[in-house]
């Protein structure tokens, strides 16, 4: 039995993510103990870590940093011990160096790049809200078996712009190319919401539950 922690720092999609991870675990018969916790010590000891997040970059960053010992526990578990990590939406954005939503806020800095407001061409609406197709840029185990022309649910006004294009795992087209997923080593992050993306999303979460980074 492996352990997975879903970090509770007051984010709105925490329980949706929990429910979807449980459904995904059942779907792939993964022996995983899923725990929702705001305890840094639990996070440091877990085998897998999921960081959810919705809303505002600066608020989420402040919320995460307000949890005693959480940032150093994450550094220890994810960067030093290389535990598989999944960030969802703002949870993914937080692993960038900088968030540019209402001023400049430092992220965890695990992926070089900024999180900046999307400026879609052609007068398209912001937020980018709804189902959009994924264009896979990496042959990544977490993106395996999503089917032909996979579509996932997005709702965001900001997106990560990685400095190194090799960190981009998938993009989506919305008046230009937008980073939909990033991946490097034991890190994976989705701008979209797998917990709201029906079977494609559950498959991605199931893939994460069984992913063994090289």
């Amino acid at each position: 039995m492996t352990s997975l922690v879903l970090i509770d720092y007051g984010s709105g999609n925490l329980h949706s993510a929990e429910r979807a991870l449980r459904a995904a675990a059942e779907m792939c018969a993964a022996a995983v103990d899923i725990e929702v916790t705001g305890d840094a010590d639990r996070v440091q000891k877990a085998d897998r870590i999921v960081l959810p997040g919705v809303g505002h970059f600066a608020d989420c960053a402040a919320g995460l940093r307000a949890v005693e010992g959480m940032e150093s526990a994450l550094q220890e578990a994810v960067i030093h011990s290389r535990k598989p990590f999944l960030g969802i939406c703002v949870g993914m954005q937080l692993i960038a160096e900088w968030g540019l939503e209402d001023g400049k806020t430092p992220g965890l800095g695990w992926i070089a790049g900024d999180v900046d407001r999307i400026k879609p061409g052609g007068g398209l609406a912001v937020p980018h809200m709804g189902w959009n197709g994924l264009s896979l840029k990496q042959d990544h185990p977490v993106l395996a078996g999503l089917g032909d022309d996979p579509h996932v649910y997005f709702t965001h006004s900001y997106a990560m712009v990685p400095t190194n294009p090799a960190d981009i795992a998938a993009t989506t087209e919305y008046g230009g190319e937008i980073t939909a997923a990033v991946a490097r080593d034991n890190l994976f992050g989705t701008q979209f919401h797998p917990e709201k993306s029906q079977r494609v999303g559950l498959r991605l979460l199931a893939n994460f539950l069984t992913w063994e980074p090289a």
Binding site: L124, G130, W131, N132, G133, F154, E173, Y174
Partner: peptide
């Protein structure tokens, strides 16, 4: 491209 949502 973004698809049109159908919402019951």
């Amino acid at each position: 491209m973004l698809k049109t949502r159908i919402i019951p």
